[in-house]
């Protein structure tokens, strides 16, 4: 018997104004509020980001994705990498994303704890993000936040998230450089590392390399990579000891740098960005179509399923729904709520 804690606390929609000028100035509070607006899918924020991006100078952010199993030391790595990048004079934004929090409920986000040493550095911005009930889910919100930070000239954007290949957030869809963290912890063998990971990793970090077994894990990873399809970039395997601070991640930082250089020189960076952009657009279309489809179904529901819902063919119903959404969008004058013709005929 637990206590009655079932109420979901929901705040009013985001209502703070998006202050373009404050954002341009780099005001941290404005940045933080803009990310809230993104999370709330406040439509006012997206033109603002577009506007900011038009005025952007310089190369844009180097977006580094950091992912690995729980307990592999990602936050500590993020902390140490941040220290290195700060020492090099770059501004660093960290998005600590927890895709595992339940969609409807609350979340307990603790990744900041290990990075609080940077809390007072104006050149570091840290934001924790959990799964929440906004349009399109966490992945789209994260990508929009990355784009905002890029527009505001944060040189390094580090997106840290747990797990690979199972979560809502596919890190390879938003990062320039994907770092996958492995550890030589007890029972951790390369076989445990999920299939498909060699394709997404640009750099493997064997963290906690002061523990026994680190060399074995690194060797096995290299063997595995040799077998995988050759591409222009040969995935690097480096060892790190994040707990030792910047010294422990120097090699990892160089590997990340090397990959960034490769992206620029080979032109692959642009190609990758283009692919990601198109995927993002597709993702947005999916998300929006889903919302509209739900709205139509909520309004008209059964009518789409025909006289005998048990015999309704989902593929055909989906086609009808899409046609209906397209018609509504192209003809805003169409009376909402009138059931579509084909179904009436059947």
């Amino acid at each position: 018997m637990g206590t009655q804690l079932g109420t979901v606390l929901v705040r009013s929609p985001y209502h703070g104004p998006v202050e373009l000028e404050a954002l341009r100035r780099g005001d941290i509070r404005a940045v933080a509020r803009a990310i809230s607006a993104i999370e709330s899918a406040d439509p006012g924020i997206f033109p603002a980001i577009a506007e900011l991006r038009r005025g952007r100078a310089g190369d844009g952010s180097h977006v580094v994705g950091l992912t690995g199993a729980p307990g592999s030391g990602k936050s500590t790595l993020a902390d140490a990498l941040t220290a290195i990048w700060r020492a090099a004079g770059r501004r660093v934004a960290v998005l600590a994303v927890d895709p595992n929090s339940p969609f409807t409920g609350g979340a307990l986000l603790g990744d900041r704890v290990r990075m609080q040493g940077h809390a007072l550095d104006p050149g570091v911005f840290i934001r924790s993000m959990g799964a929440r009930g906004h349009l399109g889910g966490l992945a789209l919100a994260t990508r929009a936040a990355v784009r905002l930070l890029d527009a505001l000239g944060w040189e390094m954007v580090l997106v840290e998230t747990v797990g690979v290949g199972q979560s809502e957030l596919e890190i390879c869809e938003l990062a320039d450089t994907v770092v996958v963290v492995a550890t030589p912890a007890a029972g951790d063998s390369v076989q445990v590392i999920k299939a498909g990971i060699t394709e997404i990793a640009d750099v493997f970090a064997v963290n906690k390399a002061d523990l026994p077994g680190a060399d074995r894990v690194a060797r096995e990873l290299r063997d595995m990579l040799r077998l995988s399809a050759a591409s222009e970039w040969r995935t690097l395997v480096v060892k790190s000891v994040a707990a030792q601070g910047p010294e422990g991640v120097a090699e990892l930082a160089s590997a990340i740098e090397a990959h960034h250089g490769h992206l620029r020189e080979s032109g692959e960076g642009e190609a990758r960005a283009r692919r990601q952009l198109l995927e993002e657009v597709v993702g947005l279309v999916e998300a929006r179509a889903a919302v509209e489809a739900r709205e139509v179904l909520a309004r008209e529901g059964e009518a789409f399923l025909g006289p005998d819902p048990e015999l309704a063919q989902p593929e055909l119903v989906a086609d009808l729904l899409l046609a209906r959404i397209a018609a509504t969008r192209s003809n805003m004058g169409a009376a909402p709520g009138s059931p579509p013709g084909p179904l009436r005929r059947s």
């Binding site: 936050s75 500590t76 603790g110 707990a243």
Partner: peptide, 10 residues
Amino acid sequence: FGTYRESPSF
């Protein structure tokens, strides 16, 4: 020796 920081467990 360095300093220690813990990962919180809830």
